[in-house]
């Protein structure tokens, strides 16, 4: 029982990381109908920015966090202008390939700028964690779980209860119609990219103290987050969260009770099962053109 509780906590913690990155996938998918394969690299770049500000330049942690996120907002805007905007009238395929190219460019650009050595980023809290009965609670994982919950609530409120959120949804559903109604489509998409880069950045900075800062950190998390998005239902915020948490818990228990080396296998078995039996995901609607 003690064992299961510990595994459950870790599973939810790591699942929250997947969920946070999945949120970025969902946002861009809702606005542009394409999957942004550079979402994981947003996390990696933000973590490196945080290392530069908080460790190398020794700025206060909170200030570094804000400066790093401002950098991410700028990167999101640039990303939109360079990667999405020139291809906006094409089908989804060139755009997807363009995001894959951008992801390779960002990873290798960081490799050229910084070199291959991984870096350490200290956590938000002084105490690394505490024991409560038989279960060890890692303080950074607790923070990740809390921030994920907060961002989900914020995102729900934003999309369902604000005019801007509704404009973004309208843009996502039908760009031509939205533009006929006077919604500035290009601006809406710009906002989406900026927000996604920032949210990906928050995920990267939050997981950096747990997983360390390395060139590959983005790719490994993003793959799982992508699976989580499909399980949850592409384009659905609640789905991405449930998908991410489920994936984290399933792989942790699978590793503990079945096989550690095949841990990643469980995640992708679940993914394959969903693609076969419920391709629209848990919460997705059956919309043929989005498949």
């Amino acid at each position: 029982m003690d064992l299961a509780l510990q595994l459950l906590f870790t599973g939810i913690g790591i699942g929250s990381v997947y969920a946070l990155v999945a949120l970025g996938f969902v946002l861009i998918f809702r606005a542009t109908n394409v999957v942004n394969f550079a979402q994981g690299e947003f996390s990696m770049v933000a973590a490196f920015l945080m290392v530069v500000f908080a460790v190398k330049l020794d700025l206060p942690y909170g200030l570094s966090f804000l400066v790093a996120l401002a950098g991410m907002a700028l990167l999101g805007a640039l990303f939109n202008l360079a990667v999405y905007y020139p291809l906006r009238h094409r089908t989804y395929l060139p755009v997807i390939i363009s995001t894959i190219g951008a992801s390779i460019l960002m990873a290798n650009g960081m490799l050229a700028l910084h070199g291959p050595e991984p870096e350490v980023l200290s956590g938000w809290f002084e105490t690394p964690g505490f024991l409560l009965g038989p279960v060890y609670f890692d303080s950074q994982y607790l923070l990740i779980i809390a921030v994920t919950a907060l961002l989900v609530a914020l995102q729900y409120w934003f999309f369902e209860h604000t005019l801007l959120g509704k404009k973004l949804q309208a843009t996502s559903q039908d760009k031509e119609m939205a533009s006929l109604l006077g919604i500035p489509v290009a601006a809406m998409i710009m906002i989406t990219f900026v927000y996604s880069a920032v949210i990906g950045g928050i995920a990267g900075i939050l997981v950096a103290p747990v997983l360390f800062v390395s060139i590959h950190m983005g790719a490994t998390i993003a793959l799982k987050a992508f699976a989580a998005t499909i399980i949850g239902g592409f384009g659905d915020v609640t789905g991405a969260i449930i998908g991410g948490l489920a994936l984290g818990v399933i792989e942790t228990f699978g590793a503990a009770y079945v096989s550690v080396p095949y841990k990643d296998g469980f995640a992708f078995l679940v993914l394959i099962a969903f693609l076969i039996f419920r391709p629209q995901g848990i919460f997705g609607e059956r919309v043929a053109e989005k498949a």
Partner: peptide
């Protein structure tokens, strides 16, 4: 106990060592 490279979490491995 083997593990695959680039794992994000080692809780199951550590618990196996402990047990």
């Amino acid at each position: 106990q083997g593990y695959a490279n680039q794992s994000q979490d080692f809780t199951p491995v550590v618990l196996a060592v402990r047990q």
